[in-house]
């Protein structure tokens, strides 16, 4: 039996929008798809590579990208012309990039996010269920166990990093009919534990620090995605772990493993399991299941 493919979406013409005098925002599609996100990643990588004058920030997002520039060095209309040229020139079927595959251990249904979500049942769609029970039910799973298996069963692409430093939005690397979809809370919570793994819309997020939040809470990772003091080796060059274009493998762990990893993280000795692959979108679209399996084989 052949595995199901991911269909490339045909995208509308990009919308080039002025963000006042110093930003250009480019919306590649109104809806989320790998096609739109890979295009955002490819164009922004190309913009970085070309060394255009006056570029201050280049930030890919889920189905769009944002550029902050100095109009003293490049006029917005000239920049947009350059961006259109790049869009025309890039052959997305051929475009590949070097991606890191990062192992993120997760204690699903952990006591900390459980305590938090129970405190905020009155802000939830289904006050009588947990976030995992609710998410499993509305996505047609028998229960949390099967749901967790699906969430940890295939890797997730970091399609955007932001909101606060180090927070990755990830999109699971499966065909659309296997994508999980869960709305955010009806009313956002005022609390979320740090390192919580949450889900909203079609995206998994990891909360780098504690704070407010509206995503459904599935678990907690013992590892950091933001290390301001840069104490762990992995953060020697940057205080933020995930970058757009990275691939995250959420790996289900038990409490004992959570505790022992956490201990290593706190003592500064934890070594992240990170591999590097040459990511080929075309291969991924053609055979998502076997290709993503192959990608995660670079992990220990």
């Amino acid at each position: 039996m052949g595995e199901s493919r991911i269909e490339r979406q045909s995208l509308p013409s990009p919308r080039y929008e002025y963000g006042a005098d110093d930003h250009v925002f480019v919306e590649l599609a109104e809806s989320m798809s790998f096609t739109a996100n890979f295009k955002a990643q490819a164009i922004t990588q190309e913009v970085r590579g070309r060394d255009l004058p006056g570029i201050v920030e280049v930030a890919p997002s889920n189905a769009s990208y944002l550029i902050h520039f100095d109009p003293g060095q490049i006029q917005p209309d000239d920049l947009i012309e350059d961006l259109r040229d790049i869009e025309d020139e890039i052959d997305l079927t051929e475009y590949t990039w070097e991606a890191r595959v990062i192992d993120i251990p997760v204690l699903y249904d952990d006591p900390w996010t459980h305590e938090t979500l129970m405190k905020f049942r009155d802000r939830h769609q289904d006050p009588d269920a947990t976030d995992l029970e609710y998410s499993a039910r509305i996505n047609g799973f028998d229960g949390p166990e099967e749901f967790i298996e699906a969430h940890a069963g295939a890797p997730h692409m970091v399609t955007m990093v932001g909101f606060v430093p180090g927070l990755p939005w990830t999109f699971q690397m499966v065909p659309r009919d296997q994508q999980i979809e869960v709305p955010k809370y009806v009313q956002p919570r005022t609390e979320t534990p740090s390192r919580a793994v949450g889900f909203g819309g079609a995206f998994t997020a990891i909360y780098p620090v504690q704070g407010a939040g509206g995503y459904q809470l599935f678990g907690r990772t013992p590892v950091e995605v933001l290390d301001v003091g840069q104490e762990l080796d992995t953060f020697a060059d940057s205080m933020v772990l995930p970058n757009p274009g990275d691939i995250i493998n959420f790996r289900r762990i038990d409490r004992d493993e959570y505790d022992s990893i956490r201990e290593e993280v706190e003592s500064g000795e934890y070594g992240y399991d990170i591999g590097t692959v040459d990511f080929e979108p075309e291969e991924f679209f053609e055979r998502p299941e076997s290709y993503t399996q192959q990608l995660t084989e670079v992990l220990d």
Binding site: A29, L66, F203
Partner: peptide, 21 residues
């Protein structure tokens, strides 16, 4: 609402916010 955008009419698929927006 488009796929991935969330349920509220003010929601869009997550995107970058310009400073000053």
């Amino acid at each position: 609402q488009p796929f991935g955008a969330g349920t509220d009419p003010t929601n869009v698929v997550d995107l970058g916010y310009p400073i000053g927006s």
